[in-house]
Amino acid sequence: MESFELPKFWMPYESAGVNPGLEETDGPLWAWLDAQHLADAAAAREYVRRTRPTLASALYHPNSESTALLPQAQYMAWAFIVDDELDDGPIGRDPAACEAAITRMIAVFDGDVADDPLTRALGDLWPRLAEGKSMSWQKSFWAGQATWLWTTYVEAVNRVTGHIQSVPEYQQHRCNSIGEYMMMDLCEVGTRIDLPDAVRRLPAMRTLRQSAAGQIGTFNDICSARKDMAAGNRLNLVLLLKEENELSLQEAVERANGIATDWLTKLNAARAALGGQLDAAGITGDTREDALAAADNVIALVRGNFDYHFMAERYTDPLERNIGAPDYVGDLLRTPQPRGRANHQVG
């Protein structure tokens, strides 16, 4: 297999450190995973351990109150497991089953909780994530989550039909498939921020969030290129650039790094423009300060994600397994039994 060296990445943001609640959160996270039966098999537990979702959350949310870090880490673990189930497991190669699983997970927003382990776990977690949050926040979170989940359906269909996305098509897709918009909204959970729609829809805020997602997705592809090559997964920007432009692997990595840098340049420009747009929209006082703080939380998330990729074995020492039958996938979204309404109602 062709090898490559990681490029010199541009990261203009200082680290905000690790949330001090990291150590006291890991034990309760594992207790929850056990109670929800999300990592019962030894291989699944080892894969989650190597992923280190508590560390990821502590880096993503360095300023969150300690009480918020546990649900943030639970969601991080849940999202990683969903991602692996749909990317690496058999359900991601069955469009009809994938569509049914996505529909069940989205229905949790309305209080419908099916009896597959991952949907049931989301039904348990969602009320704690949404506690005290406005409908604006809830709808933003679920819009991001639904968009992320539906990208896995697109990928399932593409696998079956043999369609390979072009580089421009994939770059647009990747901003959604990386699943970071929900994580940006989760920054508000632990920092007492709840932005109104007028702030969420400012052009600079939307560009800032898209640029953060684009950088994270591109950076993740560079760090995951070896694993994806070994698994035969061509849905990676580095590999698409290599094939589409007839580049060496190292040249493709360098070009992807240039794209990651471009995303950061756009992010910086959006952050610089945000203050003027808040003024133009007449957004003042605490709301204005919250908007700027929310933008800075996104920047801290970008830096935290960067550091995380050099600290978690999932990326520093990837397990190169055959795609389609990895032993860490438990098929946790398959054949649920109806469960009826949950005890909570959203909206």
Rank of each mutant, 00 (worst) to 15 (best):
D221S: 01
I222M: 12
I222F: 04
C223A: 15
C223D: 09
S224D: 11
S224T: 12
A225R: 01
R226N: 05
R226K: 15
R226E: 15
K227M: 11
D228A: 02
M229N: 08
A231I: 07
R234D: 00
R234H: 05
L235K: 02
L235W: 03
L235C: 12
L235N: 14
L235F: 03
N236F: 02
N236C: 04
L237A: 11
L237K: 14
L237G: 13
V238Y: 05
L239D: 09
L240K: 14
L240C: 07
L241C: 13
K242I: 03
E243A: 15
N245T: 05
E246V: 11
Q250C: 05
Q250D: 01
E251W: 05
V253W: 07
N257V: 09
G258A: 13
A260E: 08
A260Q: 06
T261M: 10
D262T: 15
W263E: 15
W263C: 15
L264Y: 06
T265P: 04
T265K: 15
T265Y: 04
T265M: 06
T265G: 07
T265N: 07
K266L: 12
K266W: 06
K266V: 05
K266T: 02
L267F: 12
N268T: 04
N268K: 12
A270Y: 09
A272E: 12
A273I: 07
A273V: 07
L274I: 02
L274E: 01
G275W: 03
G276Q: 14
G276C: 07
G276S: 06
D279C: 07
A280S: 12
A281V: 04
A281P: 09
A281Q: 06
A281W: 04
A281L: 08
G282L: 14
G282M: 08
I283A: 08
T284C: 14
G285H: 02
G285Y: 00
T287Y: 03
T287G: 01
R288D: 01
E289K: 14
A291N: 00
A291G: 02
L292A: 08
A293Y: 03
A293W: 00
A294W: 00
A294L: 01
A295D: 05
D296M: 00
D296E: 01
N297V: 01
N297F: 00
N297Q: 11
N297T: 00
V298Y: 02
V298S: 04
I299Q: 10
A300C: 06
A300S: 10
